[in-house]
């Protein structure tokens, strides 16, 4: 029983990370129709920036607070997201290029990010100091390391905030309008270029946050990006690309299937690595709208 409850905590934490990466995809995909595969690398970048901020910048001497590292990650990733959008996506959209062009260009960006991380930080995993230590804590029956609870809390708060943003604010409404119909939104006076920029900046920040949050559990490693990119996308497809809540649900479903399957199914552990791929294929083929289909256009 305690085994199962521990697994619930750990799956919810992993699912939260997947959900954040899925959210990063979603923020970019909804208004621009661009599937940005580089979000996984952005998460890895977030992890490395977090480690660098806490270890190299005279941090130990200053004993800087953790929230400064969070800000460093958000600022860096926001700037990188903006830079990538301005240098690759914007000129292609302005030229009226086929939607595949920016997607392929972002694959180039993915490789640039990953190889740059390798060159800057080396190929070995860098341990990332957790802000609240490794001491097990328990909330009632649920026990885990503090980082897991931090991940879960931040993710749920962030999702609530993003949900409110889309539902309740003018900017969120503009985003939705662009997602539903770019041309109509432009006619309504919404600045498409600004929405696109905002999408990439916010997407990069959320991805970076995911990497930062997960790094104390897994270390920062240059190979962490691509698996995250695949898991995040799988979460997105499971939940449905139409709704913010879908990303969260999809992330949790994926993580629970992975972890329950690995623990309780009588198959070799290596084969359980295939679960996300099987899920992704099943959903793409059988239920492409995901568990939470988009609302009717209003």
């Amino acid at each position: 029983m305690s085994d199962l409850l521990e697994l619930v905590v750990s799956a919810t934490a992993s699912g939260s990370i997947y959900a954040l990466v899925a959210l990063a995809y979603l923020l970019i995909l909804r208004p621009t129709s661009i599937i940005n595969f580089a979000v996984g690398e952005w998460a890895a970048t977030g992890a490395f920036v977090g480690v660098a901020a806490q270890t190299t910048l005279a941090w130990p001497a200053l004993d800087g607070p953790y929230w400064l590292a969070v800000i460093a990650v958000l600022v860096c990733l926001g700037a990188l997201g903006w830079l990538v959008e301005a240098l690759t996506v914007r000129p292609l959209i302005a030229r009226g290029a086929n939607i595949t062009s920016p997607i392929l260009a972002l694959l180039g960006v993915l490789v640039i990010f990953r190889e740059s991380l390798t060159m800057l930080f080396g190929a070995d995993p860098l341990p990332s100091p957790p802000p609240f230590g490794f001491k097990r804590v328990a909330f009632g029956l649920f026990a885990g390391v503090p980082q897991q609870f931090l991940i879960i809390t931040v993710t749920f708060v962030l999702f609530a905030a993003v949900w409110l943003f889309f539902e309740r604010t003018v900017w969120g409404r503009a985003f939705e309008a662009v997602a539903l119909n770019r041309r109509a939104a432009a006619l309504m006076g919404i600045n498409l270029r600004r929405v696109t920029t905002f999408a990439f900046v916010s997407g990069a920040m959320v991805a970076g946050l995911a990497g930062l949050l997960m790094s104390p559990l897994t270390s920062a490693h240059y190979m962490m990006g691509l698996p995250l990119a695949i898991q995040g996308f799988t979460a997105l497809v499971i939940g449905g690309v139409g709704r913010v809540e879908g990303a969260l649900l999809g992330g949790l479903v994926l993580a629970f299937v992975e972890q329950l399957g690995a623990r309780y199914l009588p198959i070799p552990s290596g084969l359980t690595l295939g679960f996300p791929f099987v899920l992704l294929i099943l959903f793409l083929f059988l239920r492409p709208s995901g568990l939470m289909p988009p609302r009717e256009a209003r």
Binding site: A105, E115, T118, M119
Partner: peptide, 21 residues
């Protein structure tokens, strides 16, 4: 450039898509 040639390839791909489709 050592193993950095993959960065060069990434840049090359982005430049190709942007300027020489």
């Amino acid at each position: 450039v050592g193993h950095g040639f993959m960065v060069v390839f990434g840049v090359l791909v982005v430049l190709t898509i942007l300027f020489q489709p």
